[in-house]
Design a protein around this nucleic acid. Structure first.
Length: 104
DNA sequence: ATCCTGACGATAG
DNA sequence: GCTATCGCCAGGA
């Protein structure tokens, strides 16, 4: 059942906070856990209220870090042992979802 | 109610 | 592998 209103924000923060270290979830996975498909809506919540949760554990479906936060998130992954994969783009790396994907 | 915006996803080329 | 386009959801004006 789709959680809408304030409950949506709380639900997103709860799911993100439930992700253990060394694991990550995609925006779509978080939305699916809430019973919704609003991956973008999840991104909005992260952008506004993600400051109180491990936002770096929420990444895009392609294994790429949050837009514009790649450089800030990278140290967190290395500190938690998240398997990264070097690529030649802006972020310079990619996350191995096949290994560290967490199903909430 | 309608339109625009945004740390997105999937598909088509 | 890549870019381009459309679709989706929630919030704000």
């Amino acid at each position: 059942m789709p959680r809408t209103g304030e409950g949506f924000v709380e639900a997103v923060l709860a799911v993100v906070g439930d992700i253990p270290p060394g694991r990550v979830m995609t925006y779509g996975d978080v939305a699916a856990t809430l019973g919704s498909r609003g991956a973008r809506a999840v991104g909005q919540v992260m952008a506004r209220y993600g400051g109180s949760v491990p936002w770096w554990r929420v990444i895009r479906a392609g294994g790429r870090p949050p837009a514009g936060k790649g450089d800030v998130a990278r140290p967190h992954y290395e500190a938690e042992g998240v398997p990264l994969r070097p690529v030649d783009d802006e972020d310079g790396y990619r996350i191995d979802l096949a290994v560290c994907r967490w199903n909430g």
